[in-house]
Amino acid sequence: TSAGTARALWTQLRHEGAASPSDEEAIADQASLDHAEIYGRNIESFIGTVKIPVGVVGPLRLNGLNAHGDYYVPLATTEAALVASYGRGAEVTAQAGGITTAMIGEGVLRTPAFVFRNMLEAGMFINWIAGAVDQLKASAEATTRHGKLITIEPFMDSDTVFLICRYTTGDAAGQNMVTVATEALCAYIAANTPVAPLRAFIEGNFSGDKKASYLGLHMGRGRKVTASIELPDALIRKYLHVEPEAMLAYGRVAALGSTLSGQLGAQAHYANGLAAFYIATGQDAACVAESAVGFTRAERREGGIFFSVTMPNIVVGSVGGGTGLPSQAAALGIMGLKGEGNDLHGAICRD
């Protein structure tokens, strides 16, 4: 990909009446064309970039097991008032001493699937898998310097077997990493299993990749995080302009609404903040479909309200994907998370 190929595509678009010179000027600005080769690593038929407003929230005060201090968080969105809303949250939580955070689980899932002639063959295959775990792990991990296959859990449905493969992925979100590793695992199975499947698939659509699922809700996919804070009544009134009892009353109705409508989890809309953060920092924005699942809890405590949030499917990284693009790398830099082997990144991911 080069600036020349982008210009050639714009010539074609104008010739066919699909674009105007002003369209080209807005999308194919010089700064974008100067980095055409970099952008081209993440997209085909590159013609430029779309500009999304970026705001910053903070300081956001964290009291994690490993990460402590104040952080500024970039958010890219076209939704007016979103950054202001999160800004109020950052302000009131900082005044209350900060948010307690922890990462309580980790593992990106891939679930290869194998179809057999009958239930007996499927059961025999699972028995063989149980004795070949070390070899399967070695095959998968030979494809990556950073990924580790930590568990393999069979799930059987009559003549079909899914293998729930859970990986740690270092500083990367790891979606492609675990796909390549699982392909190697499947190749080892094909070459060595005494019970040959009729069909095999690297991903059987069981893992919950970019989908809200009960599996992700309970097992987690990516990083499972939890956070909590206790806000005094006086701060709620001063910064959020609402009576604490009204907040609690709404929380009860919202929890009922989540249950009656069959939502996965109970929360208002994590997707707003996650989408803005994922876009700003070069994450895979489609992962919001699974990441925006979780539970928000509010309980009366003496003199205030205790709030907690648990999110089991946070799929993020500081390397790979779009994290190396110019603006996205700069956004990660604002947080102190740019690049591989960053001690702060490791601390925050653990928190």
Score class of each variant (00 low, 15 high):
3 A>Y: 04
3 A>D: 08
7 R>S: 13
7 R>C: 08
11 T>P: 00
12 Q>P: 01
13 L>V: 02
15 H>Y: 10
22 S>H: 11
24 E>T: 02
27 I>R: 11
28 A>T: 07
29 D>Y: 11
41 R>K: 15
42 N>V: 04
47 I>S: 08
50 V>F: 15
50 V>Q: 15
54 V>M: 14
55 G>N: 08
56 V>R: 11
58 G>H: 03
61 R>I: 02
73 V>C: 03
74 P>F: 01
83 V>A: 06
84 A>P: 00
86 Y>P: 01
90 A>P: 01
90 A>K: 06
92 V>K: 08
94 A>K: 13
98 G>S: 03
105 G>L: 04
105 G>M: 05
114 F>T: 00
114 F>L: 09
137 K>Y: 00
139 S>M: 06
140 A>Q: 05
142 A>D: 08
142 A>N: 07
143 T>I: 06
144 T>K: 08
151 T>A: 15
153 E>C: 07
162 F>T: 03
162 F>Q: 11
163 L>A: 09
164 I>N: 13
167 Y>V: 00
172 A>Q: 03
174 G>Y: 09
175 Q>M: 14
175 Q>W: 10
186 C>E: 07
188 Y>Q: 07
189 I>P: 05
191 A>F: 07
191 A>S: 12
193 T>L: 06
195 V>E: 02
199 R>H: 13
201 F>C: 05
207 S>K: 09
207 S>T: 04
210 K>P: 01
212 A>P: 07
216 G>I: 06
227 A>K: 05
232 P>Q: 12
233 D>V: 02
236 I>D: 04
236 I>L: 09
237 R>I: 12
238 K>I: 01
241 H>A: 12
242 V>N: 05
243 E>Q: 11
246 A>C: 04
248 L>H: 13
249 A>L: 09
250 Y>F: 14
253 V>N: 08
254 A>Q: 15
257 G>F: 09
259 T>V: 08
265 G>L: 08
267 Q>L: 13
268 A>M: 11
274 L>Y: 11
276 A>I: 05
276 A>W: 05
277 F>E: 04
278 Y>G: 01
278 Y>C: 03
284 D>M: 12
286 A>N: 13
291 S>F: 03
295 F>S: 03
298 A>W: 10
298 A>M: 14
299 E>N: 12
301 R>Y: 02
302 E>G: 02
302 E>S: 11
306 F>N: 05
306 F>R: 14
310 T>Q: 14
311 M>V: 10
311 M>E: 05
312 P>R: 03
314 I>E: 06
319 V>C: 00
320 G>S: 01
323 T>Q: 00
328 Q>M: 01
328 Q>C: 02
333 G>H: 04
338 K>M: 05
341 G>A: 07
343 D>E: 14
343 D>N: 09
346 G>D: 10
347 A>T: 04
348 I>E: 08
348 I>A: 03
349 C>M: 15
